[in-house]
Simulated assay, not measured.
Amino acid sequence: MSSSITQAASQSSQYLAFRLGGLDYALDFSKVQELRPLQALERLTSDGEIVSGVVVSRGVIMPIVDMRIAFGPRPPAHDPLTDVIILKLSSCVMGMVVDGVTDIVSLTLDEIQPIAGAGAVDYLLGLGEVDGRRLIVVDIDKLMSIRKIPFGARQAA
Rank of each mutant, 00 (worst) to 15 (best):
P114C: 06
Q155T: 11
G72K: 14
L127M: 10
V32H: 08
Q33Y: 07
A77R: 13
Q155H: 09
P75F: 00
L41G: 00
L38R: 02
Q39M: 14
G128N: 12
V55F: 02
K31Y: 01
A26M: 13
S145V: 00
I50G: 02
Y123T: 03
V137L: 09
V56T: 06
L127W: 01
I61C: 04
V84W: 05
D28K: 02
R36M: 12
G117M: 01
A120P: 05
E129L: 09
G53S: 04
V65N: 10
L20Y: 05
D79S: 14
L81H: 09
V138Q: 06
A17I: 07
A77K: 09
G100L: 14
V137M: 03
T45Y: 03
R36P: 08
D110I: 00
R36Y: 15
V138L: 13
S52K: 15
V101D: 15
S57V: 02
L44K: 11
G128H: 05
V137N: 09
G95Q: 06
I5N: 00
Q33I: 06
E42I: 07
L107T: 00
S90K: 15
Q14C: 15
K31L: 12
G48Y: 04
I64N: 00
S145N: 03
G132M: 08
K142P: 12
D24E: 00
Q14I: 10
T108E: 06
G53D: 15
I64L: 10
L35H: 05
L44H: 14
G72Y: 12
G95F: 09
V121K: 15
L143Y: 07
L20G: 01
